[in-house]
Design a protein around this nucleic acid. Structure first.
Lengths: 262, 262
DNA sequence: AAGTGGTCTAGACCACTCG
DNA sequence: GAGTGGTCTAGACCACTTG
């Protein structure tokens, strides 16, 4: 048995953390600490199960989750190996500006341009599936990182889902935090479209860049887990200060072909 | 038992397609066909297992994979429900330009500007982890969709991994296809950075746009499953013709905190 | 032949939700 | 209390790789 495996503390049965998560964390720790290096095999499922006194299925569950993260990969008949692919944190995710900037190591701040209830535009009605006459809350902010203006963001939310937001929300705080804590709204998926464009006069003034400078135009619709759209965001970000960092992955095979009912 | 479930054909035990994939496809088919609508619960794991004559674990494996796709979500004690989040295909993935354009419904074509072995730049050496003196193959192409120039792409690959590519590759074909079929190289992950910028004189001429038009600058490094970098791409795409479409998801919880070895 | 990962079973207990 | 999803067990057989 691998010494690295055996020398770690015991698993705690019946704790609030499932066994497979403990095993997952244990392996992840060994990989991130360098005890298991890229290209090396990790102990086999059999071996781990025997050492830790758990079922093989439980171990496989842990290993499978690490495969999905990309930190290891399995080869039938050979073993499971540590991948050299890094587990970066700065890829684009459903993050509020606040979270995003903190993850990138900057201090976020916002200046509120406007915050009020409005009639939605046709685009927002469509995006948020609003009923006729339904109002929205609109929050327009300048986003700053370390006191440098980065972008202009205009968020729209259905008034219905956060009726007293106008009274209770301090717009300097993180909108996503308040949605989660006060209304139990957790945004888990967002669809985003980015375009490259040029700053118009207003954007140039607010972002303190020259008119005609390169900028990103974003449109984003964020959804809660049941697929209901909650937020529409339209924003303009400085091209000289902002980059889009993405990790792209291969589509999952086996799901594309034959969507008929077998 | 749900009629929709029972009325479908039997599963085939011992076929080359695992049972859990058959169940997964079966459910996906029912969702995509509208037999199961957003917001509705799918049959419980117990129920499906009993009807199909398989173990609950197998059913759960199928359901879990659908959760990861985002097409359903589970609530402990309540059930598993169809999400309204669409399973779109046009999100950014590790796709060759050829695949990407076909997925978007356009006809891809490429014009080769140059295709030769070269000494790599410092940036490419770093990106591809090249040894001192190691050469690369460089392929510079104009990418067209329906005969309209979309972008300029410059791919670099280590000569070592595809030594006879220069002789055998017809540069009008898909590079990714040839890498997979001839060399068994499958790119599964790519890290990409996009910036917003302005077209310089050369880019403007090649893309037939005005100098100073908005463009995307991309840099991409693609990896095979063991984490080895295989391809470095630097490209410039027209801002008026190209959009970045992303689906963003919430970070998986439970993996961020406490990366120590428990 | 031995070891590996991939799939599958037939149970079990728990935590949670709802009536 | 009944039904649900979440986790776990102790086996099993298969496909695959390597010596």
């Amino acid at each position: 048995m691998n010494i690295k495996m055996a020398s770690l503390p015991q698993l705690t049965h019946g704790s609030f953390i499932p066994l497979y998560r403990q095993i997952q964390q244990r392996l992840l720790g060994q990989i991130q600490s360098g005890a298991l290096k890229p290209g090396e095999p990790i102990p086999s499922a059999q071996e781990i199960a025997a050492t830790l006194g758990v079922s093989q299925m439980t171990v496989r569950q842990a290993i499978k989750s690490l495969c999905e993260l990309g930190v290891v990969y399995s080869r039938q008949g050979k073993g499971t190996f540590v991948s050299g692919i890094k587990l970066e944190k700065d890829f684009r995710q459903v993050l509020s500006f606040t979270e995003d900037m903190k993850a990138r190591g900057s201090t976020p701040r916002s200046r509120v341009l406007s915050f009020d209830a409005q009639q939605p535009s046709a685009e927002v009605i469509e995006a948020l599936h609003l009923r006729a006459g339904e109002k929205i809350i609109r929050l327009k902010r300048i986003r700053q990182a370390n006191s440098v203006p980065m972008g202009i963001e205009c968020s729209s939310l259905p008034l219905r889902v956060c009726p007293d937001l106008l009274d209770t929300f301090d717009p300097r705080n993180s909108l996503y935090e308040v949605l989660a804590e006060r209304y139990g709204i957790n945004l888990v998926v967002a669809d985003e479209v980015a375009e490259a464009g040029l700053a118009d006069a207003e954007a140039a003034r607010l972002l303190r860049i020259a008119e005609g400078s390169p900028v990103f135009f974003f449109k984003r619709i964020s959804y809660v887990q049941n697929g209901q759209p909650i937020e529409h965001v339209q924003s303009t970000y400085r091209g000289d200060r902002y980059k889009i960092v993405n990790r792209l992955t291969r589509p999952n095979v086996g799901l594309l072909g034959s969507p008929q009912s077998m």
